[in-house]
Design a protein around this nucleic acid. Sequence first.
DNA 1: TTTAAACAGGACTATTTTAGTCTTGTTTTA
DNA 2: TAAAACAAGACTAAAATAGTCCTGTTTAAA
Lengths: 135, 135
Amino acid sequence: MYVTRKADYAIRCVLYMTKNTWRVTSVDEISNAMYVPKSFLAKILQRLMKAGIVSSTRGIKGGFQLAKDPKDINLLEVIEAIQGVSAANICAIDSRLCRLSGRCTVHPIWVKIREKVEKELKKENFEKLAKKSRI
Amino acid sequence: MYVTRKADYAIRCVLYMTKNTWRVTSVDEISNAMYVPKSFLAKILQRLMKAGIVSSTRGIKGGFQLAKDPKDINLLEVIEAIQGVSAANICAIDSRLCRLSGRCTVHPIWVKIREKVEKELKKENFEKLAKKSRI
DNA sequence: TTTAAACAGGACTATTTTAGTCTTGTTTTA
DNA sequence: TAAAACAAGACTAAAATAGTCCTGTTTAAA
């Protein structure tokens, strides 16, 4: 499980929107507030759209807003919206990717770690995060 | 925390050597047994050398053997010997790498996850792994 | 009705990392 | 002294990461 810059930006972005729930925020605004390159952020928001996490309004005065209640959005979901499923070791995602799997002693350990990490990430919803947030 | 092929091969390699403790094994032998490209494995073994996990004997009939008791070698140590320290998010390794850290709500979560993963990996020593192993 | 602000989406690019290979040299034992 | 084995650095191809850019389309407001 490695969190890319893209997913990290996505998290900041959802966090910002959580603090401005029900208000339409533009890419430009989020970009400036969260120190994320604008055109890169636009791509990220498109992915969050496809995942149903945000919704968009086009045209002047348009922008993005959360499509769900912040308490129903967790970290894992945002990360996976951006980079797909991931794990410490590819074999923990798809055992076919490892020619030793099935016979491999280490395999169950990767699976266990993946489960633990995903559990932690699922526990963290954005309502909770925003309460603690100072940015 | 992402485990590269290199670290994955290193683990297989240490596992093989654990099952042949006190015997000198050549790169060629391990390479064939563990399905790892020979010249790549040679590089990996050099790293394990520097980390003090294996020792080498040069010349004909030379090769590698574990430099420590398998029960004193854990997964984390082998992974870090190959790829250095890692975490789900770079900010969990060095908070200076994140311009929001200190103010970032998500930062403590990455740190917690890193700690949990490292704890799991430290628990797994090679004596234990070899007992379960069928390869 | 036109203009400008904003999203949509595809193509493109530079940099870094990953996963190796290759070559030349040194050691050691039979 | 030849061959088998490690040592170490240079090299390379492919993939992933981190963006940028450009050409559209939409829509509120002047």
